[in-house]
Design a binder for these strands. Structure first.
Length: 654
RNA sequence: GCCGACUUAGCUCAGGGGUAGAGCAAUUCCCUCGUAAAGAAUAGGUCACGGGUUCAAAUCCCGUAGUCGGCUCCA
């Protein structure tokens, strides 16, 4: 018999795992138990640290206002939150006061003491905490989600008392599964309160909203600072900020929320992105189609979009209604809708004439602009908009072709994404939502097993997303990691069991019978706008040369050399390079500063030395130089960098 | 949609019941310059919009729109 304090003298051990279960250090273990230490900077240790910090936050809140009711307070990625039901929403000043109170509690070194209680005892002690009582009621009947199980997820109900180490007095208590740090002092100074927000109780819109306080916590102050630096870095490459700074796009209020305009510099990037994709599509045997932006409602009745997604669609335009003088309708009108998806249109192209098995797989691709009435609170920069252009493809195949076609699609996706400079991928398999699906369970299971197999054969990590599929079929999606490690869901390859039925799509099989094709939805970039934002953040605005709005700027050392540079730049423009000479009256260092800030990949500088040698001097984004490069060679290198999609931030080494 | 914060010049921001401020950008002049900001002058704002309170509102109050942070949602 011993407790964790006796077993582990290392102060970085904050808890222990006994026979696989996390326990407080104060728990006692016997000889037969398998005991492992939990170090504070392990994933478990960080969770415990953060969860304990959440308790301190809650104590601080109730110390300041005892009337505030408690919700839940779990650890999350990089930190923690705690939900409260206060009289009034928290203000920034409240956060300051809470921080002070938390510091006091942490300094006091209160011990976290675990105590098993019966349900009756818990109900009595927590009589004034309605949300906690609700959780106690849920225990057993419903395991709840991870965040709720932090409170009541254990085998027995427990309350943690926060005990003053000097007096032994109980300062505060909370229903909690634990484990916790031995005492609050271990929270140290590597934490901060971040922000407040509202959150629905137990994650449902139907429930009341609580006030959530987010915080972050780390084992040391240094790690906290590193985290804050990472946040600042992410903020610096925020596409909304870069979009303004680099003059790429804007969201004029006059047009409406979530509707972007692309300025010339953003427009040329989009153009290059789309051009490359179009070339890839044609190489991969896609056929390009075009469809209109609006349609009569009947199409979306056939496709069932009006049934499933009407709330997410812009309301109808009611056209062509004719009334007589008395106001009586003598000719009924028609409802037209902005399209939220392209697939019904592609189905009509498929159905425009009889199809033969010889035509399959039939791959129809379009940059189709769709409009979705996203809820106002969900809009965010270019990543969530109301008008977006999908690089949308629909592939019609026979049953036998499905598996090979999906493999081929994944290969195509990887190759194409690499061309944009993204190369770190994993896959996610979204499977049936038992609450919401069409078709038979067998059909789904067969398809899911097939996708699973293809995913595994790809050699990439395959993450399960149970219940994540849309109602009409399972989906395999490609997630890409960007330059600072964030992941984005990009390409999706999705089976559709529903629409071929709804549209009664058919083809003539080799034996002369009519069969139903399988439909695969495939979006490679998701939406052009969102992908634009992802690339912008991935590159922090410093695009590879082929995508850079301005690829080359000529900077004469003095006005006199402008003409010489004009000649060089003219040769580049002839080769299709976006290049200009800066003839402004700024001094040379100022021009360098201006174009460095604009993230132009190549600055070509020329003065007397270069002119007399028939050369130019390169300055790269990072300030490195390559001086006296003969003009012909300079041009070739630039053209090659564009052709090869090379990222150039520093001087070439060879 | 819900909760909260915010909205002042093209951009970043200060100010705050008594006729609107800075830096950068822009324009003009001046300097002729070798790798991240020469100097000077000028112009630029119904302080998001609409109402209210007040002798007086950019400032206080209410409403609307937009943005941001979350929640819910995301075909």
């Amino acid at each position: 018999m011993a407790d964790g304090f006796e077993l582990f003298s290392d102060r970085n051990v904050v808890a222990m795992r006994v026979n696989g279960e996390l326990k407080d250090l104060a728990a006692t273990v016997t000889d037969g138990d398998a005991v492992e230490p939990v170090i504070i900077d392990s994933p478990d240790g960080l969770d415990i640290l953060r969860h304990s910090a959440a308790h301190v936050l809650a104590q601080a809140v109730q110390n300041i206002n005892p009337e505030t009711k408690l919700g839940i307070g779990p650890p999350i990625k990089d930190g923690f939150y705690y939900d409260f039901d206060p009289e009034e929403a928290f203000t920034p000043e409240d956060l300051k006061a809470l921080t002070k109170e938390m510091q006091r509690i942490i300094k006091q070194g209160q011990r976290f003491v675990r105590r098993v209680v019966t349900e009756e005892e818990a109900r009595a002690e927590l009589a004034s905490e309605p949300y906690k009582l609700e959780l106690i009621g849920l225990k057993g009947s419903n395991p709840g989600d991870d965040n709720e199980s932090v409170e009541v997820g254990g085998a027995e109900l427990t309350i943690y008392d926060n005990v003053d180490p000097k007096t032994g007095e109980v300062c505060w208590k909370d229903l909690c599964r634990g484990p916790h740090l031995p005492n609050t002092r271990l929270i140290g100074n590597g934490w901060a309160l971040m922000r407040t927000a509202a959150a629905y109780w137990r994650g449902s819109e139907k429930n009341p909203q609580l006030q959530r306080v987010y915080g972050t916590a780390w084992p040391t102050k240094e790690e906290l600072r590193d985290y804050q630096t990472r946040l600042e870095e992410a903020l610096k490459r925020d596409h909304r900020k870069l979009g303004v700074e680099l003059d790429l796009f804007s969201f004029p209020d006059e047009i409406g929320s979530g509707l972007a305009v692309f300025h010339p510099k953003g427009g040329i990037i989009r153009h290059e992105m789309e051009n490359y994709l179009r070339e890839q599509l044609l190489k991969a045997d896609y056929e390009l189609v075009n469809t209109p932006h609006i349609t009569k409602g009947q199409l979306f009745e056939t496709s069932q979009h009006l049934n499933w997604y009407k709330d997410g669609m812009f309301p109808a335009m009611h056209l062509d209604e004719v009334k007589d003088d008395a106001g009586k309708v003598i000719k009924p009108g028609q409802d037209y809708y902005l399209k939220p998806m392209n697939c019904p249109f592609h189905n009509l192209i498929y159905r425009a004439r009889a199809r033969s098995y010889r035509e399959l797989p039939l791959r129809l691709a379009e940059f189709g602009t769709v409009y979705r009435y996203e809820k106002s609170g969900t809009l965010a920069g270019l990543t969530r908009v109301r008008g977006l252009t999908q690089d949308d493809a629909h592939i019609y195949v026979t049953d036998e072709q499905v598996s090979d076609e999906i493999k081929r699609q994944l290969e195509f996706v990887f190759e194409t994404l690499r061309g944009y400079g993204l190369s770190d991928f994993y896959l996610e398999l979204s499977t049936r939502d038992p609450e919401k699906f069409v078709g038979s369970v067998e059909q789904w299971e067969t398809a899911e097993a097939m996708l699973q197999k293809i995913g595994e054969e790809s050699g990439l990590d395959l993450v399960a997303d149970p219940g994540g599929a849309a109602f009409y079929g399972p989906k395999i999606s490609v997630q890409a990691r960007d330059a600072i490690g964030r992941t984005w869901q990009l390409s999706t390859v999705q089976l559709d069991f529903n629409q071929p039925e709804l549209f009664e799509l058919e083809y003539a099989a080799a034996d002369g019978t009519r069969k139903r094709p399988v439909m695969i939805h495939r979006a490679l970039l998701g939406s052009i706008e969102r992908f634009f934002a992802i690339l912008l953040e991935h590159y922090a605005g410093a695009f590879p040369v082929w995508l850079a709005p301005q690829q080359v700027v000529g900077i004469p050392v003095a006005e006199e050399y402008g003409e010489y540079l004009d000649g060089v730049i003219a040769q580049l423009r002839e080769r299709g390079v976006r290049a200009e000479v800066d003839h402004s009256f700024d001094r040379m260092p100022k021009k360098i500063r201006t174009h460095t800030k604009a993230k132009v990949p190549f600055q070509l500088i020329a003065g007397e030395d270069d002119r007399s040698a028939g050369a130019v001097s390169f300055r790269f984004r990072d300030g490195s130089q390559l001086n006296g490069v003969p003009v012909a060679e300079a041009i070739e290198r630039i053209v090659n960098a564009i052709k090869s999609h090379e990222q150039v931030n520093t001087a070439w080494q060879d």
